[in-house]
Write a protein that binds this DNA or RNA. Structure first.
Lengths: 215, 215
DNA sequence: CGCTTCTTTGAGTGCACTCAAATTGAGTGG
DNA sequence: CCACTCAATTTGAGTGCACTCAAAGAAGCG
């Protein structure tokens, strides 16, 4: 299966750049382009009237987003300064006439994005705060393909994370403190943590955690 | 924009039937077909190991589902006895070579399904139990295009609803009782309710006009 | 260095949870 | 048609986790 970048290369495209916090498109807008991330981090989100916000996804280099038809189903904002490649939506649709590869690839992308969101929903609904944060950190580590022992970088703010995990910033802060105390994570500055190896799963409902049993 | 049913009619398709509770496909399976609902109700869900379950979506006649590429991103089960039209996935992909209509339509479907799920996530994260239930009942009423005054049917069990809204069955039951006491809903048997007209909004001004699932 | 914004800490509360049991309803066979 | 069984749903009691409100501390930015 060919790489999506090479498949899309035949469509019109050009580089664009957004600064930290900048709006890329707004929910409800009529879509004209889709994007591929070359550098940086982008968030997809839904905004409420009173400032409440649900972050749907964090996207990283290689990820494609913005493939909408009638209207944008979410807003997109730059978490950090980002370099994007912008593709004409019309051009992409034309490509689908030439080969099924494009359709196949885009379907696949849309599909995995949907699957991720579904699992996201599941985590948020079923996991307590601590495990949500661990899940997030592990996911981030996998995204960055970081070796254990190497720190994981958080490009996003605490509020971004809490809006992603369905927590308040206060609760998130407390959870992070607890994880440090328990030795599961070690801060390297405010936006970088080293994760302990077996952080993948927390013992369910097992509170001998006050005194760490030496292994 | 042509109707999706007529567009898909050119692909190979045949009717299939599932009974209440029957599995249509399982998460992770290699997909071979997609479906359109002719009659009945289908649920998409993620199953946990310990029986926990997150229902992603309830689907009704006219809805299309199962457009996956690599593997099923969720399970599909029949909520009630259902009549489906099954389409060959390969056939659908071939169709995309003939006209962009198919691609356009399928993208649109995938897109709105994604948008619905995103809003679902938002509701569950931000709304208290009572408002989640009201949101669900209103959504269901819109699905059924029922006039106010006409009862809304719930094809699914209480557990289905609670697994959809991220509540326990106990909490759901209590919420329903409270809504009855407040006169907002009137039961017509266990699986049918008459909704009071102004149920759309609950006193505290915190409904976001956007995006009920579907249609 | 002063400003603003982001993050952390503290105190107290409420909502939805768990555990447990009663009640209803659907399905089955006499 | 009616008793019986089993699952689904409802009700009750009590608790804990994540919330809100409030304020202190830290970090970015001119």
């Amino acid at each position: 299966m060919p790489d999506i970048a090479s498949v899309l290369a035949k469509a019109k495209h050009w580089p664009v750049r957004y600064h930290r916090g900048e709006l890329i498109y707004y929910e409800g807008d009529v879509p004209t382009g889709m994007y591929r991330i070359d550098k940086g981090c982008v968030r997809l989100q839904l905004d409420g009237l009173d400032g409440e916000r649900q972050i749907i996804a964090f996207l990283f280099p290689g990820d494609v987003f913005g493939l909408c038809v009638d209207h944008r189903n979410s807003s997109a904002e730059a978490v950090s300064d980002v370099d994007l490649t912008r593709y004409s939506l019309a051009g992409v649709l034309e490509l689908s006439l030439i080969s099924t590869d494009v359709v196949f690839q885009l379907m696949s992308r849309a599909n995995s994005l949907f699957g991720d969101l579904a699992h996201h929903l599941r985590q948020i609904t079923h996991l307590p705060a601590t495990e949500r944060v661990l899940w997030f950190l592990n996911w981030l580590r996998d995204q960055q393909k970081a070796d254990p022992g190497r720190p994981v970088d958080l490009p996003m703010s605490r509020r971004d994370i809490s809006d992603y995990l369905g927590l308040t910033p206060e609760t998130l802060s407390r959870v992070i403190r607890d994880l440090q105390v328990r030795g599961l994570i070690t801060p390297q500055g405010r936006r970088s943590f080293v994760l302990r190896r077996p952080v993948l799963r927390l013992e369910p409902a097992n509170d001998q955690g006050m005194a760490q049993p030496a292994s």
